[in-house]
C-alpha cells in the first residue's frame, strides 16, 4: 500500500535517514523503534511527504508520492504527530473536523459525511463527553486522544503514528493500540507506529523496524527482531526475554 524505496532524508546536507526501504501492507502494523535521534520521526515525515526525500522514492498504491497533491496524500495517509499546543481556543469537535480538510475546498463547510466521520472518531476514542470542551482545558493524554480521533476522522487508510502513547495512561495506551489493530484487521488499514515501549511493539505489531543512526538496522517479525543481541546493539541495555503468559508474545524486561 505504502512503499519506501531506498529513501534518504537530509537536513542542511546532513543525512538523518539513509537508504531506508520498507513496505506498509493492508492489515498489518509496523512498529518503529530506536534510540532518540535514530531518525524515526524523519522516517514518518518522509512517508507522507511532509519532508522531501533526497534520494529514493515513496509509492502510494504504486504511484509516486511526489506526483500527488497534499490533499490527495491526506485522504490516504493519516498522521498522529507528537502533540502540538495551540494558543487559540479550539473545541475538540472543531479540532477533529479539521481532519476532513482534504475532502473539501480551502473554504466551505463540512458536509454531513464529514460530520459523521468526525463524530464516529470522537466516539471511538471515548471523547464524547469532551466534544464541546476546549483543547487547552484538556490534559495531555486527553489531547493525545483527540489527535488520534482527528487522524481516524480523516479516514486515511495508512496510519502513521509518532509516539501516540507517550502521554497516555495504561488503559488509554491499550485503547489506542486496540483502535489501530481494529482498523487494520477490519478495514485493511496499514499502520506504522513509533514507540519506545518494546512490549507494546511485541504485543501488537506484525513487524518491527529497528532504526539506528538513520539506517534500518533490523527489520522483521517481533520474534526475529526483538532479540537480546539486537536490543543491546541498538539501545545499549541488557534485557531478559521471555514469553508473556497471557498473550504468548515476547516479553522484554530490562535489567538495571
Amino acid at each position: 500500500m505504502l512503499e519506501a524505496r531506498d529513501i534518504s532524508v537530509e537536513y542542511n546536507g546532513n543525512a538523518v535517514l539513509a537508504s531506508a526501504s520498507l513496505k506498509l501492507s493492508p492489515g498489518r502494523i509496523a512498529a518503529i523503534v530506536g534510540a532518540n535521534g535514530a531518525g524515526k520521526t524523519s522516517l514518518i515525515k518522509a512517508l507522507n511527504g511532509s519532508v522531501p526525500v533526497a534520494k529514493g522514492e515513496i509509492l502510494l498504491d504504486g504511484r509516486s508520492l511526489a506526483s500527488l497533491s497534499r490533499a490527495e496524500i491526506a485522504r490516504n495517509i493519516a498522521v498522529v504527530a507528537q502533540e502540538t499546543e495551540s494558543r487559540f481556543p479550539v473545541t475538540v469537535r472543531e479540532f477533529v473536523l479539521t481532519g476532513r480538510f482534504a475532502y473539501g475546498s480551502s473554504f466551505g463547510w463540512e458536509n454531513e459525511r464529514d460530520i459523521e466521520a468526525a463524530e464516529r472518531a470522537i466516539a471511538d476514542c471515548e471523547l464524547k463527553k469532551f466534544a464541546a470542551r476546549r483543547m487547552n482545558d484538556l490534559s495531555g493524554g486527553e489531547r493525545q486522544r483527540v489527535v488520534l480521533a482527528r487522524a481516524l476522522a480523516s479516514e486515511g487508510r495508512v496510519l502513521l503514528l509518532d509516539e501516540p502513547t507517550a502521554n497516555l495512561d495504561l488503559a488509554h495506551q491499550t485503547l489506542m493500540f486496540r483502535l489501530v489493530v481494529e482498523r487494520c484487521a477490519e478495514h485493511q488499514y496499514a499502520a506504522a507506529i513509533i514507540t519506545h515501549d518494546l512490549n507494546l511493539a511485541a504485543e501488537f505489531a506484525d513487524e518491527v523496524v529497528m532504526l539506528a543512526k538513520g539506517r534500518i538496522a533490523h527489520m522483521g517479525s517481533p520474534a526475529e527482531v526483538l532479540t537480546r543481541a539486537n536490543i543491546r546493539e541498538i539501545f545499549n541495555v541488557e534485557v531478559l526475554l521471555d514469553t508473556n503468559p497471557s498473550s504468548g508474545k515476547a516479553r522484554v524486561t530490562q535489567v538495571y
Binding site: T84, F88, V90, R150, S154
Partner: peptide, 27 residues
C-alpha cells in the same frame, strides 16, 4: 476568506496543516 478553512489547520500547527492536506506554501 477563501483560505480560512486552511487557516483553521495552520492555526494548529504547520506540520498538522501539511499532514492534513494544506498546500502550506500557497496559503
Amino acid at each position: 476568506t477563501t483560505q480560512s478553512r486552511a487557516l483553521n489547520l495552520m492555526m494548529l500547527g504547520e506540520r498538522d496543516a501539511v499532514d492534513f492536506g494544506v498546500e502550506v506554501g500557497r496559503v
